[in-house]
Design a binder for these strands. Structure first.
Lengths: 183, 183
DNA sequence: TGGAGACATGTCAACAGTGGAAGGTAAGCT
DNA sequence: AGCTTACCTTCCACTGTTGACATGTCTCCA
């Protein structure tokens, strides 16, 4: 139930409407905690019922600006400092690795190669983003930068792991051929 | 909808009952694609309705052994080779990083330190598991080893990143103190 | 023979996440 | 004045995930 805390976290730096929050979710938070419009509005409703946020102002077009309350801030702090993060999540990429034996050698190689390439593309994309940020064109908070660095390292490790696994696959699958060569 | 493919993947190497599958989910697949008993049994039912698996044999205590069908195998192959894996998932650990500014310097440090330590513990645990596997006491498939290697590298990168972020935090938060020293 | 423990399945309520439809208001442009 | 575009919210149906409860059988062993 972290959508709730994502919303509280965003509201902790100032009031915003559901629409404003949606923009943030689509941009900076998209890779960390994606959320859709219907999820956001209903979560804001629940948060208001629970007293963690309140409508601070109403604007044109039915706009409602939500502000975090003291109770909300307390809840956020509690989650940040007391609740243990989940160590890891589901990964359909890794799930496929378990079943790679179902494919023939060529297909398995192709899969790992594909993963390495995708990770490499992501790595290059993030590196570019870091360049842009470094030039100061599009400032990012210290914490945004930390998340960016995480993404960069994560992409690199995935790329390198996939390349390693591909070599490993060759090492495993070729002994029979080698024996044939020698026999 | 990968639970379906996890089940198909497991059944691809031989028939099994819901109970058997549950054991596998609790052990080797727990970190990659956790699933509960209720999920498993209902998924098996849906899979059977869709013709991807069939009851191959019935045993004592109402046991039903499911076997994958040709259609099921085709579906699994399709998913393995044609469907692009989701690049990354939600991370409540990283979500917290975005809101680290809500905490004071000491708390933020503690958070990152905690992450580094948790990752280090996981890394040591997996390294130990790799030792055990290497000794051949508890054999793991090539693919299981690849997944293990992934876990190891992932834990290492998380540990190192958290340590880096902690130093980064010091670098950012201390300039004011330094100015005070000089002034 | 009686109890513990593993084996085995089924069902239900609640919550979380996805995708899309519907409906309405304000601002800016021509 | 009329049009378009951006702004803004609500509701709904469906799927996925979790946890708990209910139910019963077989094997072993004291």
């Amino acid at each position: 139930m972290s959508l709730r805390h994502a919303v509280l976290g965003l509201l902790s730096s100032g009031p915003a409407s559901g629409y404003d929050l949606l923009k943030i979710f689509e941009l900076s938070l998209a890779n960390v905690w994606p959320a859709t419009q219907s999820q956001l509005y209903s979560e804001l409703g629940r948060l208001a019922d629970a007293g963690f946020v309140a409508v601070a102002a109403e604007g044109p077009r039915g706009r409602k600006e939500y502000a975090i309350t003291d109770a909300g801030r307390a809840e956020l702090r509690h989650w940040m400092t007391e609740v243990e993060p989940t160590p890891f999540n589901r990964s359909d990429m890794l799930l496929r690795v378990f079943f790679l034996g179902e494919l023939d050698a060529e297909e398995a190689r192709a899969y790992l190669r594909g993963r390495a390439e995708a990770a490499d593309r992501r790595h290059r994309g993030l590196a570019e983003l870091r360049e842009v940020v470094a030039k100061g064109d599009d400032p990012l908070s210290v914490y945004g930068l930390m998340a960016l660095e995480w993404g960069l390292r994560f992409a690199a490790v995935q790329r390198d792991w996939a390349a390693w696994a591909e070599r490993e696959l060759d090492r495993i699958r070729t002994p029979e051929d080698r024996r044939e060569d020698q026999g």
